[in-house]
């Protein structure tokens, strides 16, 4: 995540992989890999949550903002719109795989890949 003390995954000096074959538990190992990615992401969300929590606590301790001010903050329409735009782009990134499938359907990009190979091999 984009934080100032970001050193995540920047392990260059130490060995990263544990020697030994990694077990996969599902018939398709990609499911195991997805779980690993998902939990990695969940971990970083938790880190962000803590960072946000730290900020709120510091702001309160320094008397800059009260907890109640944060809790009762009502975003005005402009802020709501800006956040809606952010969320749309965010969701679009997460759901890219589904969107790209749809885009292919719409643009007529639907030929099986093998057909393309045959096409270029035979033309």
């Amino acid at each position: 995540m984009a934080t100032r003390d970001n050193s995540m995954s920047d392990i260059k000096k130490l060995q990263r992989k544990a020697r030994g074959e990694r077990p996969f538990f599902f018939e398709d190992p990609n499911i195991d890999k997805l779980i690993s990615m998902f939990m990695g992401l969940a971990g970083e969300v938790a880190v962000l949550h803590d960072r946000n929590d730290t900020l709120e606590r510091l702001l309160q301790t320094k008397g800059l903002v009260k907890q109640s001010e944060i809790d009762s903050f009502k975003p005005n329409v402009k802020v709501q719109e800006e956040r809606a735009v952010w969320r749309k782009n965010y969701l679009s990134e997460i759901l890219r795989i589904i969107e790209s499938e749809l885009e292919g359907q719409k643009s007529g990009d639907r030929d099986p890949y093998e057909t393309t190979i045959k096409t270029v091999e035979n033309s």
């Binding site: 003390d5 970001n6 050193s7 995540m8 969940a42 971990g43 938790a46 880190v47 960072r51």
Partner: peptide, 14 residues
């Protein structure tokens, strides 16, 4: 650091 500690805490909770 702040985030490094949080990351370890997440693993413990997990």
């Amino acid at each position: 650091t702040h985030d490094e500690f949080s990351r370890q805490e997440f693993v413990r909770s997990y």
